[in-house]
């Protein structure tokens, strides 16, 4: 474990906490894409199957359980909570997620470290995570309302993977023979997907104004 990866994990955890607080405090999920939340739940389920058969560390196990529980809690709020589910703009959140899931799964079958069920599913989760934010970014473009908390959520979600990129550089130079090409390429793509958002987020922050996306 290094400081970059710990910072990345904490930023990821914080992003989820911010989203949960937004939903719980405002009893609203306006501007939040349920599709992205469901894609992330798929990412966590397919990636953390090793919870059942391999123990890495207490930290690793606890964080996986937290990520799984919070992901499903957010989905429960958006689908089942009587007040919150009325604030979900279903008509705008229409991204065809199959166009993300199927290619990622096919790619995981073609490019992986080992042709085993758990390894293919793990690889699938790596590819899927790179594009899981797309429905959320599309929803923002459509609804234009980037409320502060949702903006912070997306910013931190993008930042965590950027911190992981630094972690991979660090591990490459400090751990002889450490290679994770699949994760490195996918993580780079994932971070690039956020660059446009980062640009407008930082611009709004610099001008100390509410974030607005181009027409």
């Amino acid at each position: 474990m290094n400081i970059f990866r710990l910072a990345g994990d904490m930023t990821h955890l914080l992003s989820i906490i911010v989203l949960l607080l937004k939903i719980q405090a405002t009893k609203s999920c306006a501007g939040v894409s349920l599709k992205t939340q469901e894609l992330y739940a798929v990412v966590f389920v397919t990636r953390y199957l090793d919870l059942f058969y391999s123990f890495i560390s207490l930290y690793n196990t606890v964080m996986k359980i937290i990520f799984l529980l919070t992901a499903f809690t957010i989905i429960w709020y958006m689908r089942k909570h009587k007040v919150v589910c009325q604030t979900y703009d279903k008509e705008q959140d229409t991204f065809r997620v199959l166009f993300l899931i199927v290619p990622c799964f096919v790619l995981a079958l073609l490019v992986n470290h080992e042709m085993s069920v758990t390894e293919v599913l793990w690889t699938f989760s790596i590819y899927l995570e790179a594009v899981a934010i797309l429905p959320q970014l599309v929803l923002l473009q459509r609804t234009k309302n980037v409320d502060n908390l949702t903006g912070n959520y997306i910013f931190m979600l993008g930042s965590y993977r950027a911190l992981y990129l630094v972690n991979w550089v660090y591990r490459y130079f400090t751990e002889l023979g450490y290679r994770q090409w699949i994760v490195w390429v996918s993580g780079t793509v994932q971070t690039c997907v956020y660059l446009d958002f980062f640009y407008y987020y930082v611009q709004a922050w610099r001008n100390n104004e509410r974030m607005k996306l181009p027409g």
Partner: peptide, 10 residues
């Protein structure tokens, strides 16, 4: 092979 075992990241 070593990459498969070392999924030590979240």
């Amino acid at each position: 092979k070593e990459e498969v075992e070392k999924h030590d990241e979240l």
